[in-house]
Design a protein around this nucleic acid. Structure first.
Lengths: 343, 343
DNA sequence: TTGTAAGCGTTATCAA
DNA sequence: TTGATAACGCTTACAA
């Protein structure tokens, strides 16, 4: 150390190795082929001895490139987001980037705050995982001029790369499964549609698929995540009108599936035996809840990984028009839709 | 902008406001009282017009203080960690710090990598959430000379602030509940004890409490999270030897409770009716699994918040000897321990 | 109340 | 193959 326990700097290393800062910098930046073996040795020893670590602050300031990626997550509490994040992280690691993670807790001003923050740390790109985000919260995002990739959800009137699930295909697969299992009436339960394209797409594909099968009855309902009373009402109402046929519920996402399951428990409705149940998003506890819950699993990790690759492509100068990349989901059949036709 | 779409700098602002950098800097750093109203106006306008955001890189480099806190999480997949993180985040926000989150995925070299990284970004303090961490992984942590607070778990031979659950109390409460419910034989299932103090403390309190009640039978077993076969064996064995009395299982943490529940499902053992079940850590799906699962909920958010407060105290120069801060858990009784004495 | 200039730890330019 | 030296964008003596 130079004086009082402070971090060693490149100058300290240079001094210790009896050379100039330039050579040390060269050593650090892989231009080792231009250094003599002897000098290399001395620098190596000095670095080890001083336990020197280059300051990324100074580096970032000087070079202008930080190799920093900002990740804005609307709701870290959502397992979907966590899994996506793992994929992003893996990609960062593989590509030599570092992730700066921000959780907005779904608060609009937090989003603004973090956007400023990321920008002031000169992140080179931003990934936005808007799952769970309220619509108003999206408003600020457009401010940023940085390379940006959206996960799962588009922002209305904002042309930008998006990576997510093939919603139409997935909803079709899910619906067809219910039809094969001979459910006659299906209720599609979603969070309020608003302008959230994923919800619209899933609903639309559901309706289209149902229409292709005459004699089946399709219905839909919008319920907020935090409105259990309404959910109870919606489910009960549907049940009362359709308990004589084989009926099922298709839920738009995992967070809502949790609520639906709770509601059915409250109402004493048994999924699987009395009413079919299928939800988007895999759940760790899916097999533990009664007869198990059939889910449509998203390739979350893959989605995250892919999103980061795309943002890096943009950082590296790709100016192709914004594209939408979608991945297929996987239906995991469990007891809640294993319908055994009863007497 | 000055030239080619680059970010505006403080010089640009100064120029636009027809003043010097110093005044702008003063404006930004709250020393507004020394500025004339007129100058303040001009600066304000210039900043808005150029959409100027100070570079934290430069600021950090110059001042040496970054207001950055590093968070190392062993396993972001664990809901416990996520909740703790939310508390930390809230505290950061309240105190004007920014969180740099790193997920080591429980890989030893990742930990080393992130430690270097955080240090090179000159974070002012580090919070380590070691839940889910393998022991070897802890080895690197001691290198850091930064203010550091541990969450949940101590590092052997490393004297450092720790914030977590009052394990002895919690285990006692849980065990006493089982005794009150008249379970005669209880199996404590834990991940391999190793040097993990939390597991030792919970087990120890369990044993002590059981000993105070003669006629009760206590047993323990160590099972790795990823060894379902062994878990099946352990549970089946216990069941076969104690099915004639009222027996129960006490599980050391939420991750393992998930596995235990799966195992019981495989074995056809019904929690609540055939065997009692109580697990540390609250689970979102606790009430949905059969008759519900009794849990011992930790004040996770609180723990996170408190940890950050402590790290800030250290940053601000507090040199008191390392302390351990523990919070009480809360028992949430559900069907899995609501034992109805049968014929 | 305002501005000038030095310097934080790097990397890039240029000369030796 | 090496090494001064000038930036990078900011804060902070120190002057005015």
């Amino acid at each position: 150390m130079n004086r009082k326990g402070a971090r060693a700097t490149i100058s300290d290393v240079a001094k210790a190795a009896k050379t100039g800062k330039t050579s040390v910098s060269r050593y650090l930046n892989g231009e080792q082929h231009v250094l003599s073996a002897d000098l290399k040795q001395r620098i190596e020893k000095a670095i080890a001895g001083l336990n020197y670590r280059p300051s990324q602050m100074a580096r970032g300031l000087k070079r202008g490139r930080t190799r920093l990626i900002g990740l804005i997550i609307a709701d870290i509490t959502n397992p979907y987001s966590v899994e996506v994040m793992c994929g992003i992280e893996a990609a960062c690691r593989a590509q030599g980037f570092t992730l700066l993670m921000c959780n907005t807790n779904n608060e609009v001003d937090q989003e603004q705050h973090y956007l400023n923050l990321l920008s002031s740390y000169q992140v080179e790109g931003i990934v936005v995982n808007a799952v769970g985000m309220r619509e108003e919260a999206l408003s600020y995002l457009q401010q940023s001029l940085l390379p940006m990739v959206l996960i799962d959800r588009k922002i209305p009137e904002f042309d930008c790369d998006v990576v997510g699930l093939n919603n139409s295909e997935a909803a079709r697969v899910a619906t067809e499964h219910l039809i094969e299992q001979d459910y006659r009436a299906v209720l599609f339960v979603t969070e309020p549609l608003g302008l959230v394209n994923t919800r619209h797409e899933r609903l639309q594909a559901f309706k289209t698929t149902m229409e292709r099968h005459p004699g089946r009855y399709a219905e839909q309902a919008e319920v907020a995540l935090n409105d259990p009373a309404k959910l109870d009402h919606v489910l009960m109402d549907f049940w009362q009108r359709h308990q004589t046929e084989h009926c099922a519920v298709l839920v738009v996402n995992g967070a809502l599936t949790l609520q639906v399951t709770r509601s059915m428990k409250r109402l004493g409705l048994d999924w699987g035996t009395q009413m079919g149940l299928l939800g988007f998003d895999e759940l760790v506890w899916a097999e533990l809840a009664g007869v198990g819950i059939t889910t449509l699993k998203q390739p979350t990790w893959q989605i995250g990984y892919s999103a980061l690759e795309q943002v890096i492509r943009r950082i590296e100068g790709d100016t192709a028009p914004p594209e939408e990349k979608v991945y297929s989901g996987e239906l995991i059949v469990r007891g809640s839709t294993r319908f055994s036709p009863t007497p």
